[in-house]
């Protein structure tokens, strides 16, 4: 069942706000991927993460196309920028998932 997360209407302004933050003294929210290079992570069975994760994936795609349309898939700097927007706009929604 979709949680119905709505994309922020003005991600450009969110990104600009993120870029203005004082990194040396402000808390910066992020949404990190969990990767396993040992081959031991079983499929995730956490209901909350499985409900919310597809919403966040969809939003990451949306913000990526909107904010960094020409970025290469492996442009980690672009990915980090887009993730700051995702986190800034949707961090707290996880508590309602």
């Amino acid at each position: 069942m979709s949680l119905g997360y709505v994309p922020h209407p003005d991600p450009e302004t969110v990104l600009a706000d993120c870029e203005q933050r004082a990194l040396e003294r402000e808390g910066i929210p992020m949404v990190l991927a969990l990767e396993d290079l040992t081959g031991g992570l079983p499929p995730v069975r956490d209901a909350s993460a499985l409900a919310e994760g597809p919403e966040l994936a969809r939003l990451l795609g949306h913000y990526g196309e909107r904010l960094r349309p020409g970025a290469a898939d492996d442009d980690l700097k672009a990915l980090a920028s887009v993730l700051t927007v995702l986190a800034r706009a949707h961090f707290d929604e996880g508590s309602k998932a």
Partner: peptide, 13 residues
């Protein structure tokens, strides 16, 4: 990773 539920929120200070 997000789609499969492999993610975690952090706040970097």
């Amino acid at each position: 990773a997000l789609r499969e539920g492999r993610y975690l929120r952090v706040v970097n200070y």
